[in-house]
Simulated scan of single mutants.
Amino acid sequence: MTTWYQRQPFSRLPLTSSSPMPSLSLVSLDHLSLVTAVGDDTMSYLQGQLTCDLISMEKGKSTLAAHCDAKGKVWSVLRLFHHADGIAYVQSASLSGAQLTELKKYAVFSKTTIEASELVLLGLMGENADSTIERMFSATAEVTPTQSGTAVKIEANRWLLAVNEAEADDILSQLSGEAELADSSLWTLADLRAALPLLHENNISEFIPQALNLQVIGDAISFKKGCYTGQETVARAKYRGINKRAAFLLTGEASTAPQPGDTIERSVGENWRSGGAVLSGYRFDDGKVLALAVLPNNLDDDSQFRPANEPDCRLEIIQLPYSLEDND
């Protein structure tokens, strides 16, 4: 694993819940890992393992996808894109080893090489990010090559860069005095505000893709392509309505940031019962927290929530940045 991040002055930005975001931030994405796949059978092999229709993905686009086990439970949520001569994806570094081993289980029978990459992962975000990427890389698409790697647009004014250490040093030099350096918590906050799910090791094989809202986020799930691992469960959840959970944004005040795998309790009459699990969380310097948590999708309007480890805290659901109505 590269030690490049530890040699740079990335740090947590002091933010309150009402703080404006910096106009440009260069973010260490050391909480993510990059995997590359190359070879004649790469597309067909991954097509049979992941929920997205990878074969239909344009070279200038990226997509989220789930990698499921045979029962349709999600091993990992991936961001896939064309990279060099093959495909690459990013996911949480905490589960990368286990997920990669599972994904490669049957690759021995195909002409594809799937391996962890040593490239540096950086984020560029803020109101000046799109114009900066265009200036630095002459980007005309949402996925564009750099000198040594690839730049991937996540959403408006937020980009992920997968580059070698020399190019990472060059980017750092070019943006000196222009971009604030921030640790990965700023990227986590952006993912939270966009309600984009990221699984960590505490959440492996706990949820089907629809419980993570992947059916309504871009093209993360294809219901029209051929078979893939876990497809039967994913299809049954759609056509028979068996999914009873969804990911919701929660906010409130707490003494610590909600952590992946933490239990969220909900009120049932005068009692409290386990209601769901945290996917990711962030705590502002004024004590406000934001969390993405998987909860029942048939909640009463007056339901109350609290972290199981902070019984005096109260959390409330806030509106997602997208609709949970599946129009596919």
Rank of each mutant, 00 (worst) to 15 (best):
T112I: 02
G149Q: 03
R12P: 12
V120R: 05
E201C: 04
S28A: 14
N213L: 03
R12Y: 03
D30K: 03
S205N: 14
D286P: 08
E206R: 03
L189V: 09
N298S: 14
L64S: 08
S19R: 04
T233L: 12
L124Q: 11
S323L: 06
L15E: 06
N309S: 13
P258L: 13
Y106M: 12
N213V: 04
E316G: 15
F223C: 06
I208M: 09
L103V: 08
D302K: 11
S56C: 13
E265M: 10
S96A: 15
T188P: 05
A179D: 01
K238H: 08
Y228Q: 07
L249N: 14
T256M: 12
E165Y: 06
E310D: 14
S56H: 12
I133S: 08
N297C: 05
N271V: 08
V143G: 01
L161S: 07
K238V: 01
K61S: 15
T63I: 10
E155L: 08
D301S: 14
T42H: 03
P260N: 00
S76F: 01
G252W: 09
P197E: 02
L279R: 01
K238A: 10
D170W: 11
S267N: 12
T132G: 05
K153V: 08
F109R: 13
L198S: 10
N213T: 02
V216P: 06
Q99G: 03
S274T: 15
L324T: 06
M43G: 09
I114L: 02
L15K: 03
S280K: 07
K61A: 15
V27H: 05
L299A: 07
G123E: 02
R240K: 13
G177N: 04
G281E: 07
R306Q: 15
L196V: 13
T251I: 11
A182N: 07
S184E: 09
N202E: 12
